[in-house]
Write a protein that binds this DNA or RNA. Structure first.
Lengths: 231, 231
DNA sequence: ATATACTGTGTATTTTTTACACTAACTAAA
DNA sequence: TTTAGTTAGTGTAAAAAATACACAGTATAT
């Protein structure tokens, strides 16, 4: 390969906004940095892209290194490229969000040395983050809200079997507003991609609710691609 | 600045999908390459990001160099990072689309040496493009379609004064489907951000239509930010 | 048995979307 | 000045979707 391209002292990185849902709250996975710059600050998990991996592969790898999770739903949402966003050099970062099921997950432990800690934090109670990560986070949640309207992403955050109330609480947490119970259920069921199970919630100290699951096959049959009506 | 970051033989680039609207058709500005690789192929205009400019600045600059236009509406829509997407080295490209008013514009002439020609091509009649530019283009038009539903981007493509029929033709070109005339007008006018002018179309060989303009001030008053209903 | 807590359901009203076709206005040409 | 040609501009009824709204039923815990 001829060196026809100019060389920069520059690098690509990936930053991940990892969303989870727990106890009725939307959470995001942060790491506490153990190295300069921004030692002791909270930050979004991220890392540099290797020379021989695509950015999608890098995103998958980085998420795995941090959470031990594979096959997560990840989506690129924006690229941040201010000149001074990284104090040590020119780094353009491609930001992804990932949606994961917290429940039943073994504790997330960062494998990388640069983090001394990792924690789920409520999106309503975030500290100031390292680098431009606060801005990245803000962008991510806006994109997430919009995508919720036309893609079945909520189900990535819930356990496989869930109640309609759990689903509603999740929508409310993402959209940050209350929804009407009857109207919500009517609309969700009208789509036809929720499968009612012969099974009920367990371990609650009140009437147990029916469990449902998201029927991906039906979803794709109904909407070739998304929930946008096209007229 | 300490060299704490690993160095890659790598670079960032910007590629621009420049949309225009003319003669009832949605067009895209392509350049014919004059250099290897992909000599003589059609491609999206693009270039490398300099070490001291943000990606937004780079996008603005590159568009200017190619079209002589400034202050265009540009929006980042996706970043492409396959390892082998560029045959000469690792190049991650951030793709933007720009919406420009073709009409009354002086001819676009590429200023860069690597292009021997630039031309507006109908989006329905594109050749196979250099690199992964066909894929980039496909993504751009999908994003454009979606954004049309919640952002007032159509007006960037029309002259300042336009008729409702022109607006409708543009929507039809972007969405690639016919719309009902009465319903379209009713809906557009119901938003309240179109200002009817005391002026009519000129130079047509039939009844002249009323001219309208997009009232940005009203738009922002009505929708803080976008056209999405939030209930 | 009773208190507690959440589940699950229907209807009426309003709003939005859709389908649909003709006359009026203007220009150009004869 | 008449006529042909072309687009502008307009309303209504029906269907569909969104909204607002409250209580009885069922399971658990004590």
């Amino acid at each position: 390969m001829e060196p026809l391209l100019p060389k920069f002292d520059s690098a690509f990185s990936i930053d991940c906004v990892i969303f989870g849902f727990e106890a009725g709250e939307l959470k995001v996975l942060l790491i506490e940095r153990n190295e300069d710059p921004f030692k002791d600050w909270w930050a979004l998990p991220g890392n540099l892209v290797e020379a021989d991996e695509s950015i999608e592969d890098a995103a998958t790898r980085i998420l795995y290194e941090l959470t031990g999770l594979r096959d997560m739903h990840m989506e690129q949402f924006h690229t941040f490229g201010a000149v001074k966003r990284h104090p040590l050099g020119r780094v353009i970062t491609v930001a992804y969000y990932a949606l994961i099921r917290i429940i039943g997950q073994k504790e997330v432990k960062p494998v990388t040395k640069y983090a001394k800690n990792a924690a789920w934090r409520s999106v309503n109670d975030l500290p100031k983050l390292a680098y431009d990560h606060s801005e990245i986070f803000e962008t991510s949640i806006q994109k997430l809200r919009r995508r919720l309207a036309y893609q079945p992403i909520a189900f990535e955050l819930l356990p496989e079997k869930f109640t309609l109330t759990q689903l509603q609480l999740l929508y409310e947490a993402i959209l940050n507003k209350k929804l009407d119970k009857r109207n919500f259920r009517k609309k969700m069921l009208s789509y036809g991609f929720l499968k009612e199970l012969d099974e009920k919630q367990k371990g609650v100290s009140y009437r147990a609710a029916k469990l449902y699951k998201f029927d991906r096959r039906k979803y794709f049959k109904i909407f070739q691609n998304d929930l946008t009506p096209d007229n």
